[in-house]
Simulated assay, not measured.
Amino acid sequence: MSFLMLPGFYIQAQPNSMLGLLPIVAMFGIMYFLVLLPAQRQRKQTKEMLANLKNGDEVVTNGGIIGTIIAMNDEDQSLTLRIKPDNVKLRFARQSVASLIVPEGTIAQK
């Protein structure tokens, strides 16, 4: 650190202000690659999964209910699930489906 001595004043030399912004820019870059980019990929996969649902698919809802799709209504984006063992039929919003259950012996496509 260098000081400029003037009568009655001590002035400290300031480093380049652009170097001070570099850590902040680096933090935002790291946050983008570690948090935002994977979240975008997950949203895209979920949207694709919801668009490809069909009758007979076994799904898990956000509430943890496992059932088989027996009817789909594209007008109000709902679907009807048959819940075993009592064959109870419940109607859900399509967005409430959390995941698709892939039967054993088949290969899940990504």
Results as ranks from 00 to 15, higher is better:
Met27Ile: 13
Ala93Asn: 15
Val97Trp: 03
Ile101Asn: 09
Leu53Ser: 05
Phe92Glu: 06
Ile69Leu: 07
Ile101Thr: 00
Ile30Gln: 03
Val60Glu: 09
Thr68Phe: 02
Ala26Gln: 08
Lys89Ala: 10
Phe28Pro: 15
Tyr32Gly: 03
Arg82Val: 08
Ile30Ala: 13
Ser96Gly: 00
Phe92His: 00
Arg43Pro: 00
Gly56His: 11
Asn73Cys: 05
Ile24Pro: 11
Ala71Tyr: 11
Leu53Pro: 13
Asn55Arg: 14
Ile101Phe: 03
Met27Gln: 06
Leu79Trp: 03
Met49Thr: 12
Val102Gln: 09
Thr80Cys: 04
Val88Lys: 08
Phe33Lys: 08
Met27Gly: 15
Leu90Ala: 10
Pro38Tyr: 06
Gln40Val: 14
Ser96Tyr: 06
Lys89Thr: 08
Arg94Glu: 01
Asn62Ile: 05
Leu79Ser: 05
Val88Leu: 07
Ile69His: 03
Asn52Ser: 15
Val59Ile: 08
Ala39Tyr: 10
Ile83Pro: 06
Arg41Leu: 10
Ala26Thr: 09
Ile30Lys: 11
Asn73Trp: 07
Asp76Phe: 15
Arg91Tyr: 12
Ile24Lys: 06
Gly56Trp: 04
Leu50Cys: 09
Gly64Asn: 09
Arg43Lys: 15
Thr46Asp: 10
Asn62Thr: 05
Phe28Asp: 13
Arg94Phe: 12
Ala51Gly: 09
Ile24Trp: 05
Gly56Leu: 07
Leu79Asn: 01
Ala71Gln: 07
Val88Pro: 00
Ala71His: 13
Pro38Leu: 10
Ile24Cys: 11
Gly64Cys: 04
Val60Tyr: 01
Ala93Trp: 14
Asp86Ile: 14
Leu37Arg: 15
Ile24Ser: 13
Asn55Leu: 13
Asn55Thr: 13
Ile30Cys: 09
Asp86Val: 15
Val25Tyr: 07
Ala51Ile: 09
Gln77Trp: 03
Gln45Asn: 14
Leu36Gly: 13
Phe92Lys: 08
Val35Ala: 12
Ile83Phe: 06
Thr80Ile: 02
Leu36Asn: 09
Ile30Phe: 06
Val35Ser: 12
Met49Asp: 11
Thr46Gln: 15
Ser96Val: 03
Lys44Pro: 01
